[in-house]
Simulated assay, not measured.
Amino acid sequence: MTQFETARLLMRPIQPTDQDALQAIILDRQVVAYLRYRTIKTPAQFKTIFDTHFLADANTVFGIERKSDHQLIGFYEFHSEDTTGLLTYALSPAAWGHGYVAEAGQALMAYGFETLNYQQIEARYASVNPRSGRVMAKMGMHDLGELHAKTLDSGEVVHVMRYVLSKKDWLVAKSA
């Protein structure tokens, strides 16, 4: 079982016992407003994606567990696009503002480059959520600006911003 540890966190494959905590995160409209999971609106829809994706992809989907109380507070995942790992993450609102995403992200970057052999890791965020961009910068990623604008089902136009880190830049930073 692949897992990673930091001072405060354990990143590990999602387990069946994580269903309730992860469902609360995915069904929270505030958390997923700009993520691919915003279309998951019912417990039945969540159960399907929990079984077919979160439990099934143990090499690319990781729960973020706080070591102090063993609570699942979020997840990180990679979606592969050729030699690029597209990074997605979400965190329970109660865990926001504690630096957990950047802390976990450092361990996942190493895994993405060393084990999954990505040549580049990319993350995206909605411009209305600049805190996500700051987290990506803390992880050493470089701001490439706007990727595109997207109109959501609600009619809201969202500017999708893009951060990238190449394996070469990661290796240089790692050796410094």
Results as ranks from 00 to 15, higher is better:
Thr2Pro: 14
Phe4Leu: 10
Phe4Gly: 06
Phe4Cys: 08
Thr6His: 09
Thr6Pro: 08
Thr6Leu: 00
Ala7Glu: 13
Arg8Trp: 07
Leu9Val: 04
Leu10Thr: 12
Arg12Ala: 02
Arg12Glu: 02
Pro13Met: 05
Ile14Asn: 00
Gln15Val: 05
Pro16His: 04
Pro16Cys: 03
Pro16Gln: 10
Thr17Cys: 14
Thr17Arg: 15
Thr17Ser: 15
Gln19Trp: 00
Ala21Trp: 02
Leu22Ile: 09
Leu22Pro: 10
Gln23Arg: 13
Ala24Gly: 09
Ile25Tyr: 10
Ile25Gly: 12
Leu27Val: 02
Leu27Ser: 05
Asp28Met: 00
Arg29Ile: 07
Arg29Asn: 11
Arg29Cys: 09
Val32Gln: 12
Ala33Thr: 08
Tyr34Lys: 00
Leu35Thr: 15
Arg36Gly: 12
Arg38Cys: 00
Arg38Met: 03
Ile40Glu: 06
Lys41Leu: 12
Pro43Ala: 05
Pro43Asp: 02
Ala44Glu: 15
Phe46Gln: 01
Phe46Pro: 04
Phe46Asp: 01
Ile49Asn: 10
Phe50Pro: 02
Phe50Asn: 00
Asp51Met: 09
Phe54Gly: 01
Phe54Arg: 01
Leu55Cys: 06
Ala56Phe: 05
Asp57Arg: 12
Asn59Asp: 13
Thr60Ile: 08
Val61Cys: 15
Val61Ala: 08
Gly63Asp: 03
Gly63Lys: 08
Ile64Ala: 05
Glu65Val: 13
Arg66His: 13
Asp69Gly: 03
Asp69His: 10
Gln71Val: 03
Gln71Met: 08
Leu72Ala: 06
Tyr76Glu: 09
Tyr76His: 15
Glu77Val: 04
Phe78Leu: 00
Ser80Lys: 14
Ser80Tyr: 06
Ser80Phe: 05
Asp82Pro: 00
Asp82Tyr: 08
Asp82Thr: 08
Thr84Phe: 00
Leu87His: 14
Leu87Cys: 13
Tyr89Gln: 08
Ala90Glu: 14
Pro93Asn: 01
Ala94Ser: 14
Ala95Ile: 00
Trp96Phe: 05
Gly99Leu: 07
Gly99Thr: 08
Gly99Trp: 02
Tyr100Cys: 02
Tyr100Gly: 03
Ala102Asp: 04
Ala102Gly: 10
Glu103Pro: 12
Glu103Asp: 11
Glu103Cys: 13
Gln106Cys: 03
Ala107Val: 05
Ala107Lys: 11
Leu108Gly: 01
Leu108Trp: 03
Ala110Gly: 12
Tyr111Gly: 12
Tyr111Glu: 06
Gly112Ser: 04
Leu116Gln: 14
Leu116Arg: 10
Ile121Thr: 04
Ile121Ser: 07
Arg124Cys: 13
Arg124Tyr: 14
Val128Gln: 15
Val128Phe: 14
Val128His: 03
Asn129Tyr: 06
Pro130Cys: 07
Arg131Glu: 11
Ser132Glu: 05
Gly133Trp: 11
Arg134Thr: 11
Met136Thr: 01
Met136Trp: 00
Ala137Met: 07
Met139Trp: 04
His142Ala: 10
His142Cys: 03
Asp143Met: 09
Glu146Lys: 13
Leu147Ile: 05
Leu147His: 15
Ala149Cys: 10
Ala149Leu: 08
Thr151Phe: 05
Thr151Pro: 04
Asp153Ser: 12
Asp153Met: 09
Ser154Ile: 03
Ser154Val: 07
Gly155Asn: 13
Gly155Ser: 11
Glu156Gly: 09
Val158Glu: 15
His159Met: 08
Leu165Trp: 03
Leu171Gln: 15
Val172Met: 05
Ala173Met: 07
